[in-house]
Amino acid sequence: MMENQAKSQNFKLSSEKEKSNISLGYNPYAKDKLYALLFLGPSLLILAIFVFYPMLRTIYLSLFLTNNLGNPTVFVGIKNYLTLLTSSSYINSLIATLIYVIAVSILTIIIGLILAQAATKKVAGISFFRTIFSATMGVSVSVAAIFWLFIFNPSVGLLSQLFTALNLTPINWLTEPGWAMTAIVISTVWMNLGFTFLIFFGALQSVPYTLYEAAQIEGASKSYQFFHITLPMISPTIFFVSIITLIESFKSFGLIDLMTAGGPNNATNLLVYRIYQDAFLNGNYGLSSTESVILAVIIAIFTFIQFKVLEKRVTY
């Protein structure tokens, strides 16, 4: 309390000083600007070097053909863009990415919410389950990939043995296009769940209990309570999680690299993996810069749509 008072007094004093300065023809904002520069400068400098310059350089490179050393040699204008947007394999990648992103986001949110809701129940041993549900946060991508590869292995894998035991034909999880995508989606959702669960669980805890009590007195059913109390109350969290998952799944790389390497038949060759392949395997820096620019635009559009559409449904 004392301190606060002292601060506000200080503030008053300084603002009075400024006033008197104005009358002396001295610009008070000059000092503010200097401070702003001092405080923002370091981060601006870092952003400029590590974000803005690479961004501009990427746009620049996207207009060139590059040689083996990655230097731009032939200016081709928007030809790289045209080549990509008319290439059927790129369009396939684009569609695959959309399917992947949408499937992963929706499944992660729904399953995460179900798990979080279940974990709020006060039953014996619940803390064990809470730990298990959030455990995937501590699993690294490479470990997860090995784990899932073992499950999906066509000859000695867990799933194929289960299928054989049940007299079903085993599925070639990682070699048939449709199933490969399914396998990647399953593993990504599993990876994402820990984080989503934790966030949702926290949000559910913060919904005031009095609301449910009031609803119970009114005789509202459990499902009515969920859709009319829980969902609106945690909608900001759902909004946050949906944006994070969406952007993260656009950028997913590790699981794909380790599990399918973009195959079979490019079914899981998502945009980011393509960028990596074109730049660091094929040395096609120009083309991969073009792909990066297109990906950035797509993510920007999606985020914009989410802010416009979803935000209206969010009750803060």
Partner: peptide, 11 residues
């Protein structure tokens, strides 16, 4: 068919 990529050879 074991597919392509680093996992294929291992499988």
């Amino acid at each position: 068919n074991f597919g392509a990529g680093s996992s294929a050879a291992a499988n």
